[in-house]
Simulated scan of single mutants.
Amino acid sequence: MAREFEIRREVVLPATPEQVFEAVTTGTDGWLFPVADEAGALPGPQAPGVTAWEPPGRFAVRTEGEGGWFNALEYRIEPRGEGSARLRYTHGGVFAEDYDTEYDSCAQHTDFYLHTLGQYLRHFAGRPAVFADVQGPPASAGADGFALLLDELHLDQEVRVGDRLSVDLPEIGVLDAEVDYRTPQFLGLRSHDGLYRFFGRNAFGAPVGVALHLFGEGADRAKAGQAWQSWLDGLYAG
């Protein structure tokens, strides 16, 4: 049975309201995923679904579907001085199936995405980003799917946020990065030119995923995506 949900978060970000507004509207490649439409157009005050465009203080968007379905996001941005801002974020919508699982998944994804927004603003704000999204094969949805990925990265329980790792991955090469986020289902790594996000979605009945936000000169979306896809496929082939 379909039920409405609402998730609210409040975070302090290391950027001006103007920088935050740009990041949550036209700069999402660097921390979330691309929001351009099929024609390549970025959001603006007249874009379909935009219900509030009040730079730099408020942005909201809503989409609707059949049977009362909707998905709505609102970003309220307040200045705090000294180059920082407070973001009040609200995500509302409808879950049609397993409400508890979907809510838990959405809430945890929200925390991870907003953390990544902070990492982007602190380390890469304004830099062009190449985004690639890679999904593991069906086998990665098993109970030990994310644990296998962590083992391959040589991340045992003792590795915490702030620790560094250097690992040579088949198809990819050496990944030298700092752990910037870690929970049982999510892992964030930050290198000098990229944010690497790992999603243990097997906890919610879906395959493991990897999102790449690459800021290095000459970063190639197709090449990076193919390399990480090959690594994931090989990891779960056995």
Rank of each mutant, 00 (worst) to 15 (best):
G205H: 03
P48T: 10
D156Y: 13
V210W: 00
V61H: 09
K223D: 15
P138Q: 02
D168N: 13
R58N: 06
L187N: 12
A132F: 03
P79N: 12
D193F: 08
A96C: 07
D233T: 13
L169T: 09
E38T: 06
T28C: 07
D168Y: 05
G173L: 10
A2V: 11
A41W: 05
R122T: 05
V174A: 12
A203K: 10
F21T: 07
L148G: 07
L169E: 11
G44R: 10
S84C: 02
T25N: 09
A36Y: 02
V35I: 03
Y99V: 02
V174G: 01
P79Q: 11
L214N: 06
R122F: 06
T25A: 02
E158F: 10
Q119I: 09
A211K: 03
H109N: 14
S166A: 15
W228V: 12
R164Q: 12
G93C: 08
E178P: 01
S105I: 03
V24T: 07
D220G: 03
V61N: 00
P79K: 13
E6A: 11
G68A: 14
W31R: 00
A139C: 01
G162T: 13
G194N: 12
Y236Q: 11
V61T: 10
L214K: 00
R190W: 04
D133H: 12
F131M: 08
F21L: 09
A211T: 15
T26W: 01
P34T: 06
V134Q: 05
L169A: 09
P56K: 08
Q226H: 02
P45H: 09
Q135A: 13
D133K: 10
C106R: 06
L13G: 04
K223I: 11
A132S: 15
A211E: 14
I77P: 08
L235I: 09
R58S: 00
T183M: 14
Y75E: 05
L114Y: 12
L212V: 07
H115S: 14
P79D: 13
F112G: 04
Q157L: 11
S166N: 07
E4G: 15
S191W: 01
W231Y: 15
F124I: 07
F198H: 02
R88A: 02
G188M: 08
V179S: 12
E102C: 01
L169F: 04
V35T: 12
R190A: 11
V50D: 03
L189Q: 06
T63F: 11
Q119G: 06
F33L: 11
Y103C: 14
F186E: 05
P45E: 15
L175Y: 00
Y103N: 13
L155A: 01
F124Y: 14
A224W: 14
D29Q: 14
R201D: 06
R8F: 01
L73M: 10
M1I: 07
H109L: 15
F112S: 02
H154S: 05
G118S: 10
D220V: 00
E158H: 10
C106N: 10
E10P: 01
D220F: 01
A39M: 13
A141P: 01
T63A: 11
E158S: 15
D37H: 07
P207W: 05
